[in-house]
Design a protein around this nucleic acid. Structure first.
Lengths: 338, 338
DNA sequence: TATATTTGCGTAAACGATTGTACATTTGCT
DNA sequence: AGCAAATGTACAATCGTTTACGCAAATATA
């Protein structure tokens, strides 16, 4: 920088006041410390005139407050997480805080390293969708007193607060919908197996099938990616006895399914039915608009941030663990079997 | 935090060395200052044992280095910018820097405020897609010596380096494609009028039309949103003489077009043709796969970050202003007129 | 007028790391 | 042995804020 950065010392000199007074005026504590109107005026004018910009580092060093929240997601290129990021980023900003967004790339090692880096930045809170069932490094921070909220993915057996969808119920809704339409042979293509949402979705699926007396089902796959959806669908299609319906556990997986189906010239829902988790605007414009289990992304984000700041305001506040009801959106991708 | 944060002072005490030595070991300058092997060992062990986490604020206050880059985009909920954010975030992290992502919501006032906030955080660089033609606040930072790179949107008449698509050429490609397919009455639905990409796209469109001797065209709209696409299409459809093709200047606009067309039961490409700017995986799975002008998002991001860090490494480095060639992807949304 | 209270502001010590300078000790060389 | 060079480490100032404490002047009260 060519220009010397102006500090409160400069302002103090220019106004003939002390840095204390300047600091108090500029941080809005003028009334509290009974700084005279004239002095306030002088300080504010000088600050504007000299184009003063506070140095957060100095302030934060002194106060220990960073005004920073960390957000760690497994994959920003997944539209579901992208919209979570967008919502949470906006929500946090309303509190005057900023967000540091990290992408763990579904890799617990990266997640751990990111966390370590973030710790050095004195983050005041953490919103995370843990990418695996490794919880130790997160639990550690939580126990140190850092406000932590899990979104989407979480740990069932830990104390850490979370906000997510009722995945079990969502999966049941979707499966019931398929069953009610006469489907008896259904394949469920799952994502990361160790993640709680995935487990619960699979549980909802299998239980509903079993309860309906249907046992001709399968659960395949292991990743929330387009590729996984594509490969597993390809494999399913090569089987002797094809399923009549697919249940994709994420919209990325569903996209992979569609790609495979298209390649094989299999029509939805005429030849096979498809239902997916996650909503997205584009689902409506697809060749066959996809029925889906819509997660309340906006609500999840808002509640998570509300929890976070409630805890920040009052250390004793104990955010809870909440599951929001999903909505099933019935479109045209599920056909009736006779 | 319940646990006292350990500082290098604590390590110094524990090891019986000075903070100087500890600092030098921990910041990898041990060799440079000839710290003995044994001391290095002791410090490193103590650090691990005491679970030392460096305080970036303190370091940054002293050095002035924040290891932080700011990224300001007009709208994170636009898939195009979401993918830019994802790419850039990842790219920056490779350099050991972190990214602060801001959403200006297409509002120059917000953009200005964000910038002011970021300045207080001592950002070392700025990547921005300016949301309007107000350039003063950005130019100011640039002139102060802050490395700045514009992506996607930029200012043609300023020195500030940028990386974007050759929007003019892209628009010509798309328009030519329509013209070659016999379309004579074409409407172009544009986004934010003051933005350079929009201007150049409109220019490419109108010039190509004029060059082809076609004058039955219109340019409507004023926002890169689904709603704008929807409303303008609705209006266009109510006209006496409908266009035979639509050129949407972003994928959000295209989605709005599709919504309106669907409502009116107008088929693509049978009744009307549609081509759009911006690629997205889902475009392939739409009822009619959408032809589009694909922007090299990944290259744009990578080059921008390369520029940024080249400039950071060497203040004299002068990043240039580059336009990358778009690719037209012809799918099924443009029909042939007889 | 003398004392108590309020008003208005300043002194100086932190916060935790980095770093220019300087000094002691050891080693190497003649 | 005597001196230079190499080796290993420490002191103390500094970055820009915040804040506990304290004091003077102005005003109110008796």
């Amino acid at each position: 920088m060519a220009t010397h950065k102006v500090s409160i010392t400069d302002i103090a000199q220019k106004t003939g006041l002390s840095t204390t007074t300047v600091s108090r005026v500029l941080s809005g504590k003028a009334e509290q410390y009974r700084i005279g109107k004239k002095s306030q005026q002088k300080v504010k004018e000088a600050a504007k005139e000299m184009h003063y910009v506070p140095n957060h580092f100095a302030a934060n060093l002194r106060t220990g407050k960073s005004n920073t929240i960390a957000l760690i997601l497994p994959s920003l290129s997944n539209p579901f997480f992208a919209s979570i990021a967008s919502e949470i980023n906006a929500e946090i900003r309303r509190f005057g805080y900023i967000t540091i967004i990290s992408d763990s790339d579904e890799n617990p090692e990266i997640e751990k390293m990111e966390l370590e880096q973030l710790r050095a930045r004195n983050i005041e809170g953490l919103v995370i969708a843990p990418c695996s069932d490794h919880w130790e490094h997160i639990q550690e921070l939580y126990e140190e007193g850092l406000p932590v909220v899990c979104v989407d993915r979480y740990f069932e057996d830990l104390d850490i607060p979370y906000v997510s969808t009722d995945n079990y119920e969502g999966a049941k809704m979707a499966t019931r919908h398929l069953v009610e339409n006469g489907h008896k042979a259904i394949s469920c293509i799952q994502g990361v197996r160790s993640s709680t949402p995935n487990k619960l979705r699979v549980k909802g699926f299998t239980e509903t099938m079993n309860d309906a007396g249907l046992h001709d089902y399968s659960v395949v796959g292991d990743d929330f990616t387009v590729q996984n959806g594509y490969l597993e669908t390809k494999l399913l299609l090569q089987q002797g006895k094809r399923p009549t319906a697919l249940f994709a556990l994420s919209n990325t997986i569903a996209m992979g399914c569609m790609k495979a189906l298209k390649e094989e010239n299999i029509r939805i829902p005429d030849d096979i039915s498809l239902i997916t988790f996650d909503e997205h605007p584009y689902l409506d414009y697809l060749a066959t608009p996809l029925s889906c289990v819509a997660q309340p992304v906006s609500d999840i984000s808002k509640i998570a941030i509300k929890f976070l700041f409630a805890k920040l305001d009052n250390g004793d506040f104990k955010p809870s663990q909440v599951l929001l009801k999903p909505k099933i959106q019935i479109k045209e991708s599920v056909g009736k079997m006779r």
